[in-house]
């Protein structure tokens, strides 16, 4: 028996919004410790990793490890049937070929039950090595989304250069060039407005705008985003999922000239 109940059901809807443009189908690995998803996009350029801790749920039970392969478009359609303040429960029997989504209104006066067929997915699992990143940039997630959107008008790539002066985002194309520089903030009223740069050595890497823009679909999950960079290693873009976990996007840098 698997059962996971989330009073802040809205978080699950936001997680789906954050992955459904990048992934069409994926497996949710359910274990005693929580729920994880790891999948590459269709082009195998990026990797998405979602981690939802068991203790973050209001009720969590997983008697046996369970892999639930899901069509994420279908899962998203079902979650769209819930209201933003609904309590969401996911439920499956051991060895079941369906999963149930139960939506309860806060007053408990409306309860909806949706069942979805599970899929057998044969997906490659990748090992992500422990890395001490040369630069870790923490910044407002809305600002990052804005920069990615704005610079996408100039070219298909964004160059991210992190140095002790700050972080510079650049793009170049037919219409001209664009540069956005952010310095570390000295003092802010709200912690979520801060730009914090932890740099061991300067790093400059180039990334495809298309993927960065898809990662920013996670912006509603968290007011802050962290970007971890290291020479010749994939970028990690990480958003917290409320108090219950995090979503990480890994993107291979563009190489050569």
């Amino acid at each position: 028996m698997f059962e996971a109940r989330l009073v802040h059901g809205n978080l699950l809807k936001k997680v789906l919004d954050a992955i459904k443009d990048l992934l069409t189908e994926a497996s949710w690995d359910c274990a005693d410790s929580g729920i994880q998803l790891q999948a590459m996009d269709n082009s195998h350029v990026s990797l998405v990793s979602v981690n939802l801790r068991a203790e973050g749920f209001d009720k969590y039970r997983c008697d046996r490890n369970l892999i639930m392969g899901m069509d994420l478009t279908s899962m998203s359609k079902i979650l769209k049937c819930s209201a933003s303040d609904d309590i969401i429960t996911m439920k499956a029997q051991d060895n079941a070929d369906t999963v149930s989504f139960i939506f309860e209104s806060p007053s408990q006066e409306k309860v909806s039950d949706y069942q979805m067929k599970l899929m057998n997915l044969d997906q490659d699992h990748l090992g992500i090595p422990e890395t001490e990143y040369a630069c870790v940039i923490k910044m407002p997630s809305g600002e990052f989304a804005r920069i990615c959107r704005d610079l996408s008008n100039f070219g298909e790539n964004i160059v991210i250069a992190c140095s002790k002066e700050g972080v510079k985002f650049s793009a170049a194309g037919d219409i001209g060039t664009a540069n956005v520089k952010l310095a570390q903030t000295s003092s802010v009223d709200k912690e979520e407005d801060a730009v914090v740069i932890d740099m061991q050595e300067p790093v400059t890497l180039t990334f495809a705008c298309r993927y960065l823009n898809m990662f920013t679909k996670a912006t509603p999950l968290s007011p802050q985003v962290s970007l971890s960079m290291h020479p010749d290693v994939p970028l990690v873009v990480e958003y917290a999922i409320g108090e219950i976990g995090q979503i990480q996007y890994f993107l291979a840098p563009k190489i050569g000239d």
């Binding site: 350029v45 990748l126 290693v233 994939p234 890994f250 993107l251 563009k254 050569g256």
Partner: peptide, 14 residues
């Protein structure tokens, strides 16, 4: 132009 490698070039299956 720069080339786009796949993510599996960096992360081994496991």
């Amino acid at each position: 132009a720069k080339k786009q490698p796949t993510i599996s070039k960096f992360f081994a299956p496991g």
